[in-house]
Design a protein around this nucleic acid. Structure first.
Lengths: 187, 187
DNA sequence: CTATTCTTTTAACATAAGATAAATAATCAG
DNA sequence: CTGATTATTTATCTTATGTTAAAAGAATAG
């Protein structure tokens, strides 16, 4: 839990009690690459922190695999469109590189919010930051060419391109794999 | 404040005290169409609730006006990428239809979070819901044609197309006004 | 009501990206 | 190590959308 606690500390330092309460509702899970950590159709009841490894959220549109997002070491991953609505998720979480994750039971976490406002505040801040990232991503998608989006990703998150199969990156950028390959050829 | 209180009630009912505390840090503002409610370059320190009217968030990319989002009666609007980071916003809020809004002082609101956990919870839930909408919008932009996006908007939010000049809708959809007009002609 | 300005449509042409297929290249299981 | 699978690139052709310019239509101020 060490890394996770450090991550927490940056967002909103917690008391010992609060940290212990979180530890009690969390499990450490090891999972191999290409496995689904969470599968399509189930309601999201877990928030994950990635101690080690790489993961993505994906779904199918017209039978085609589309990557919604990537998450790396030292970050949170959750299917928020299910977590915050209680509806079943059409998305899955897949591990792309052998991982160790902290799995936090969301229902129990939400109960902790009542006794530990500081925990509620922590996760408020975590998801506010994630929200901001998502808003920025919309901006990136609105009026940038595929090539601009690729180059931006190359700058902002080169590790995505180092660690993730290109076919997953292509759909993340909103283009086909063939287009991505063509764009990469332009250099 | 009546409408705003009703809106609050749906998310997270508050005690009288909490409602009063919010009322104390809020102003009611009337503003005419085409005016900027907030301008580019300033750090966002206000969260708005729209009692009446229509607004949009916009910014410029390469000198071109791009609509990030629309907000209508009975909804919150804020430039979260500034509000939650404290950085100046590159975006503005413009009124598209004569409006009456509740302006909530964000700094004072954040202070209220300390004394009223229920208020913190309220806004946590409000922004969680907004976050979910944004995630869903990414999905819409990833692998839908401009025409699909237009038709989806026509279904989900026909009022956007009724009340908003098409030039603003086009950039919201991520296409040029000329393309939007062409798509509309296809029927 | 009219002139002016702003908005939307139409047209012609250019280009980026999609679709399909096939060829390499890389990875993996046995 | 080798064959089989999976990932990536390359090529060709098609199509959707961008760009620019101009025309038509709607809104607004005086």
């Amino acid at each position: 839990m060490q890394k996770f606690f450090q991550y927490i500390h940056k967002f909103n330092p917690l008391t010992k009690d609060a940290l212990n309460a979180i530890a009690e509702i969390s499990d450490i899970i090891e999972i191999k690459r290409n496995k689904d950590l969470q599968s399509i159709g189930h309601t999201c009841k877990t928030i994950y922190f990635i101690n080690k490894g790489v993961a993505r959220i994906y779904y199918f549109k017209d039978g085609i695999d589309i990557t919604e997002s990537f998450s790396f070491e030292n970050n949170i991953i959750a299917r928020v469109e299910s977590l915050f609505t209680g509806k079943p998720s059409r998305k899955a979480i897949q591990i792309l590189e052998d991982a160790e994750v902290v799995a936090i039971n969301a229902n129990q976490l939400f109960k902790l919010y009542d006794t530990f406002p500081e925990i509620e505040r922590l996760f408020r801040k975590i998801f506010e930051a994630a929200y901001v990232e998502t808003v920025n991503r919309i901006e990136g998608m609105q009026f940038h060419s595929a090539e601009e989006r690729y180059n931006a990703l190359l700058n902002e998150a080169p590790n995505v391109l180092m660690k993730v199969p290109l076919k997953y990156v292509a759909s993340y950028l909103g283009i086909t794999q063939v287009s991505l390959s063509r764009i990469r050829g332009h250099r």
